[in-house]
Amino acid sequence: MSSGEPDRPDVIIRVIARMLLGPTLMVAAALVAKGYAEVGDGFGAGVAVALAIALTYVALGGARAEAALPVLRHGPKLAVGGLLLALATGFFPLLLGEPPVSHRPAPGEHVVKVGTLELFTPLVFDIGVFLLVVGVLIVLLHHLAGRDGRDGS
């Protein structure tokens, strides 16, 4: 609520926003990594991170949030990069003469593992989706926070 000047939200919100960002990224990484055996996926991870970023926007306002986290200026690039990454993993099997959305290593083949994380192409797809969701929501937040009203997403 509006305590004091309108452009300076509560100090508590600002502190919490800053503190939450790191853990959220951790949770997002866990959501992507665990998605193949338990609950979680790239979309959920993306939304979680976007929520933390939204809180940062609320706490600091558009200009200061983007000064504090320069990556927020690259929302469109994140979104397009993520979409291309996802499309590439979806359609690369065409080059090998397989139907789209086949994955490598193919079923039954040996999979490299890092801890419990299996390294195969659906993981790349999920990371693409994650980037896409974060990117699109950053673009939206940027427009909603900005003062100019031109250029919808």
Binding site: V80, L84, L94, P99
Partner: peptide, 20 residues
Amino acid sequence: MILSVALLVPWATGAVLVAL
């Protein structure tokens, strides 16, 4: 094959062009 490519071409280039 052509079926999948016809789907991919506008989609992928569309994604790139949105950013330009």
